[in-house]
Nucleic acid binder design. Structure first.
Lengths: 217, 217
DNA sequence: GCCTCTAATGGACGATCGTCCATTTAATGT
DNA sequence: ACATTAAATGGACGATCGTCCATTAGAGGC
């Protein structure tokens, strides 16, 4: 068990066989996230992280200078990975309708790849300690500027034809994100009952009410 | 600072002056919640709770049998207080329209009394550790049966006149709760930007889309 | 081969954790 | 006033925390 996660070196690499600082850095980050998902932030200690990564206890101080920095790096890594996967799942052809682009974001956010026991536990764990960890707070926001802009532009296209309340686009954007946030909480609370399809349809229904004639089944 | 929170005995009580076990129990719970809101769950230790309450270190073991039980009791107390205050703020006359009853729930949930820095931090702190603390998980759900039923019945009345999709009522209910959940996260993320009024109006707008002709300004 | 430099180790360290209990203090019954 | 009972104290305890560093191990240069 102890060295199962060890890095297997792609043979043609610059580094010949052992000694790969960067790989160990990443290994520590992964071990941190796994530990948090497994036993919770409260019990995630330096010793526990090290024994899971198979590395020695000194490594954390060596690579990150301390536990807090490792936690922050892990939060950043987690956030980056989330948005990278989100991008990957939502780059439809540029001729996709704005409705399809919005629904792509929703379905991506509710997909198994992004919403699963591991990510939910980690996400809420980080958010729970964000108030007292300024470094982590910066990576626990759902308001990623790029994602917000994606939604905003899609809703703007939809609402453009008929001039309406100028707040409509903003409301649709932050309402959609709020609904997704709520779905994550529902998932964490009871994974058995939760249904990805029903959750997506619920949000579609709300958007359909906001933009009459749009977001129909 | 140390004994500011000490209990002042109502003079005519059964207990003459000192020695009030139940009051100390409550005092420990309050101190626990205050500590969590102040420095985060991670740093909330037995010593810190005791020094805030002004009581001795042995009290926690005496009254709760251990730190975990105290945390669970604090979560329960917090949840109970939330729903009690919610009840207090939403008992309109029984002749109130269903729309008003729904909006009362929304406005209560977004009111200063229920949504403030202290409650948000505590709430998310508990949710963050709920996965690894089964005892706490039971009190970190937004799906309080009574509140759900209140919303369900109001939406049922609204939708009743014209038969629609049978899922409409359920969707409106859990959608409203999800939106509120998202608003709490927005508040936690950036309390400066957050606007209670705008948040309430956003949810009203979503509901207005769901029930045409209803929830107008 | 040897030298140099850095990655990596693992134990030492003091501080703090949560638990437990012998003792003291206050209220009650007689 | 004294005995009894429960509440409350605060220090002892071993375990574990996070940090730090003297030491070892491995890779590249000469």
């Amino acid at each position: 068990m102890e060295s199962l996660n060890r890095v297997k070196e792609p043979k043609g690499r610059k580094r010949s066989s052992k000694r790969d600082p960067e790989a160990n850095r990443q290994l520590l980050i992964k071990a941190t996230l796994d530990t948090i998902a497994d036993i919770g932030v409260t019990d995630t200690s330096v010793s526990r992280i090290c024994e899971r990564s198979g590395l020695s206890r000194g490594m954390i101080h060596l690579h990150f200078g301390g536990k807090d920095n490792l936690l922050t790096a892990a939060a950043q890594h987690f956030s980056t990975e989330y948005y990278a996967e989100m991008d990957r799942m939502t780059d439809l052809g540029s001729d996709a309708s704005p409705e399809d682009r919005v629904m792509a974001v929703i379905e991506a956010d509710l997909s198994e790849a992004l919403l699963n026991p591991r990510t939910t536990k980690i996400w809420h764990a980080f958010r729970g300690i964000a108030s007292s960890h300024p470094g982590i707070a910066r990576y626990s926001s759902t308001q990623d500027p790029k994602l917000v802009e994606t939604l905003r532009r899609a809703f703007l296209e939809i609402a453009h034809q008929n001039e309406q309340d100028p707040n409509l686009v903003d409301d649709a954007t932050s309402g959609t994100l709020a609904l997704l946030e709520g779905m994550w909480v529902n998932y964490l609370t009871d994974m058995q009952i939760f249904s990805r399809r029903r959750s997506a349809e619920l949000i579609r229904r709300f958007l359909g009410g906001l933009f009459p004639g749009k977001f129909m089944l």
